[in-house]
Design a protein around this nucleic acid. Structure first.
Lengths: 190, 190, 190, 190
DNA sequence: AATGAATGAGCATTCATTCAT
DNA sequence: CATGAATGAATGCTCATTCAT
């Protein structure tokens, strides 16, 4: 599935690539996607040329950042799903995804949305997560922990929305928990 | 609150202003705030110069659009609040605001956020709505219809989030209603 | 054919447009098409924005320059064709076109070539000249002044080539005339 | 003129150099000199670094390509000149040079031009050909086969021009021959 | 020697805003 | 007042050339 098609990449090249991704993640997340590529490169300590060697387009960079985030989420979701019984896993993952999706919405938006125009890699990562969620949702519904009339699309939309909510809320843990209480309660049957 | 400091405005000037607001609302909502001012002017049938005479800045135009939306929402909210008993009014307004906030998130986002950098007019309109909501929330909580641990900030964030959710969902009324069911259920005590 | 679809254009706008065309003609002709648009704008005494308002693309500017040249040639050709008898007109036009095509080849190249990818305006101007030449050639052949086995494509290619030749020759009128003697002699029957 | 100053060059280095020249010739000829050096290197199966080791500059590569072409032409010209009587040799060589100059003009242009800014190697190769042509021209004129008022500069310019003509014509042999008929006829006395 | 990653000046193009008409 | 031409800073991207591995 994720075969070894890219060559090893020289040590420093790999380091630059990673730095660029880190900087881009930080910068896109906190200041939006409007930040000039040049600034991202400078912050990462490389020239623009280097940035464009690694990511042929600004959009490609954005996609790479998102894919990395999605893959991290997928991995954590898989872990949780393996360690818990279905109903607990569902709620834990819901919360996990929302927390991980933090960042300016403009960005988080694309996270769960499948409608991004055919970006292969993104689509793939997105599909993985959606599949995981479908399983979790089904399990939780069978266990009677989640209202049975909820479909995957609604779940995805809800995840996106609650991510937005969290951004509006700021860091206060009490507030954040209260929101989770509201939504998770609402997800239960009746 | 704000006296009559603007002069009457000639008939055609007023018409231009209105057309610009209409076009800008439509265009920002459906295609995002990145649309060139020139195009907005052209669509409204006026020159850019005219646009900038009415709104000295693109940001000012954006603000004016938002203020108009907020004022419309405030008016409807006031009406509902007057016609219903507190607990029903709260839920009705919640739904109303979410539906009215439709449009590209980028835009809806700023809607409820109070922390936008001190734009006087926006702040003012936002304050009005927040005050209305505070009253509604309090009434619903006193009536035992809404969990008592929910504060105004959480409510605002939730409104923003559910608006986002709706945009992700599309037009299917059944889906939209299911989301409301989840959230409104979650808002009730326990 | 050349209807009045463009509005009159304000006086200074027209002046700017003309200056840009003049400068571009000069600059493309003497230094090739690689000259930065910015320099063309600066030389014409306007900002880049103005250049791009008049010609949405560098390529469009290039096309406009060529069209203007082609139209001038077509007009002169028409005049000559009207004033002379067929055989003389043919040779006079041949010489005229070659002289008018002066400039760096990179540029002159596209002049007679019909294969430029579907640029409407260019194509049209080019067609006009080709039609004129077809008539002239036919007339001269009927009059027995030009070898009968020569087709329009060959004539066009020859025009392009002799233009190149002239560029290589420089300004010496004696040399230039000698080249014309060679080619025009060669064009006669036998 | 230029002694043996280059060292032998290791076997594989020589092979790389040759491949680069081959690829560059092909690529510059068919797609113009705008093709990125990187692509040339890749097509030749080497890294850019290697290309720049052999040719310190893109211009140097271009020059080397041209020199190789010129040398090939000089060799063939010498052969023809040795095998034929002066008048025939002149016409044969004219045709030979034009055919060999095929390729994008941008390129062929520089071929015969002596005024290219003092590139030593190019100048030298160009001089050789010019000397050969001077002899051939003189011989043909003495033999009464070519009009006596034609000078070397005119001949060179004509060669460049007819090369351009051929490129505009495409591959049809009948057309090409007709052009030669015209020009060679024109070159004869009267 | 070969490699290919890094560099950064350079270029075409966009767009908010100003100002002459 | 309205108009739309002019402006130019800003941006994404390319490519010849250098240099660490």
């Amino acid at each position: 599935m994720s075969g070894a098609k890219e060559r090893p990449l020289r040590a420093d090249a790999a380091r630059n690539r990673a730095r660029l991704l880190d900087v881009a993640t930080e910068v896109f997340t906190t200041r939006g996607v409007g930040v000039p590529t040049e600034e991202i490169a400078r912050t990462a300590g490389v020239g623009v040329g280097t940035l464009f060697r690694h990511f042929p387009t600004k959009e490609a960079l954005l996609e790479a950042v998102m894919v990395r985030r999605l893959e991290a989420i997928a991995a954590q979701t898989a872990r949780l799903a393996a360690e818990m019984k279905p109903s607990d896993a569902f709620f834990a993952c819901f919360q996990l995804i929302v927390e991980q999706s933090a960042g300016k919405n403009e960005f988080a938006q694309a996270l769960v949305a499948a409608d991004v125009d055919a970006h292969a890699a993104l689509q793939e990562s997105s599909d993985v997560i959606q599949a995981q969620l479908a399983v979790l949702l089904d399990g939780a519904q069978r266990a009677g922990a989640v209202r049975p009339d909820l479909g995957l699309p609604e779940l995805l939309a809800l995840l996106a929305g609650i991510s937005t909510t969290m951004e509006h809320l700021g860091a206060d843990p009490a507030s954040r928990q209260r929101i989770f209480d509201v939504v998770l309660d609402g997800l239960r049957p009746h």
